Amino acid sequence: MKGKDELIKIFSIRLRGILQRMDVDLEQLQEIRLRVDKPLMIAYGGREYFVAESGRISLDEASGYVVDKKELLETMEYIANYSLYAFEDELRQGFITIQGGHRVGVAGKIVMDGDKIKSVKYISFINVRLSHQIKGCAGEVLPYVIQGEEVCHTLIISPPRCGKTTLLRDMIRQLSNGTDYFPGITVGVVDERSEIGGAYLGVPQNDLGIRTDVLDCCPKAEGMMMLVRSMSPRIIAVDEIGDYGDIHAIETVLHCGCKLLATVHGSSIEDVKKKPLLQKLVLERIFERYVILHNHNQVGKVKAIFDARGTALYEGRGTGC
């Protein structure tokens, strides 16, 4: 992963030393979690580990370095460049996106203004979710998603931390740039939580291709409609669909002739059918392809690919993302 030094610099001085001493493959490092008066933890290769002051990682809770309030506040100062006020809009959504496209989630006391969130104060929990690009990881999936000269409406179904956003990102990049067997086409991305493009000051830090337009920090439903009206995309890509607004916007997008790439949490098509708002899309066979991921032994494995009728087109040889 590029930008290791840039990433380490957002932490307090003491935590920088601990993280610098960790002997891990940064491409497998998914999260770094800080909680006041709790052990320092990481998500690594699909598992959780505690980090000792020596930098050694283990499953032993007692070995974990305990993060105090001062270190967490110092970390927040570095993240926000000593001006949390400048990030007030992002904090209302519960995260800040930093250079490199990494997302810093925060939790603490919520301050309300009527029925709307005004701000977050007394921040006591930080989760740094690392942004990863694995170029080419969608290579084995794309032939199942492309049919002739068209892209199929595709839903990626995945449990948390199984690489769905990484797979979606590379699908966007390859479809935008074009491949040996498919010409590049215009893709519109609604990146509600800055996870797909990892935009910093409006510029995606991840490579989404040369024909891709991005709406960053925009609600999915509104963003899909904005792209249809203004950017003439052939494909619209969104992460983690599920609420009523998303479903209504999806129906409109389909009627406009756009193809859809989307993700949802779950382990199977049956899981998706249990979600009341998504059930209709499955039963009406709106999605032409379902890509199922899992993380058995390796993050981002493709378990299976099905067509709209539920017929298996591919069953896992362990393709990894």
Rank of each mutant, 00 (worst) to 15 (best):
K2I: 15
L283P: 00
G105K: 08
S119I: 00
H255N: 14
K220W: 09
E150A: 03
T186F: 04
K274H: 08
D239S: 12
G300F: 06
F95H: 13
E6F: 10
Y200T: 13
G300N: 05
I241R: 11
V214H: 06
E251H: 08
G188D: 04
R129K: 12
H248A: 14
R173M: 02
Y82P: 01
I134E: 15
G184Q: 01
D5V: 14
V111C: 05
R234W: 01
K109A: 13
G266R: 06
D243V: 02
K2S: 14
V282R: 02
L278E: 03
D239L: 09
I247S: 02
V264N: 02
R229G: 09
E240L: 07
N295K: 15
E27M: 14
V111N: 11
V145T: 08
S267C: 10
G188Q: 05
I79F: 06
Y200K: 12
R92F: 03
A62C: 08
P39S: 05
I250V: 14
V190P: 08
V282F: 00
G223D: 01
G316R: 00
D60G: 01
G320N: 12
I286P: 01
N206R: 14
V253C: 12
S63H: 08
E88M: 09
L29R: 08
V36A: 11
R35H: 05
I79A: 05
K116C: 06
F87Q: 15
H132G: 04
E240T: 09
A43S: 08
K301P: 00
D23C: 12
I57P: 02
R103W: 09
R285I: 04
A43Q: 02
Q20Y: 02
G101P: 07
M224P: 03
R173P: 00
F182R: 13
M226D: 07
G178P: 01
K118R: 15
G114E: 06
L91R: 15
E90F: 11
G101H: 04
D239T: 10
L142K: 02
V203Q: 03
M171W: 13
K164L: 06
Y144E: 11
G139E: 13
F306H: 13
Y314S: 06
C321G: 14
L73T: 15
Y290P: 02
L260V: 15
R211M: 07
G223F: 01
G320D: 11
Q30E: 14
D113F: 04
L84S: 13
A304M: 14
K274G: 11
V253Y: 04
D23L: 12
E77G: 02
Y290F: 15
E240G: 07
Q174N: 12
S194N: 13
L155G: 04
G202N: 04
C218E: 09
H294T: 08
G202K: 07
P276H: 03
T165D: 03
A221I: 03
E48R: 13
E48V: 09
I10Y: 02
Y65C: 03
G202F: 10
D191N: 07
Y85M: 07
R289F: 09
D170P: 07
L26F: 15
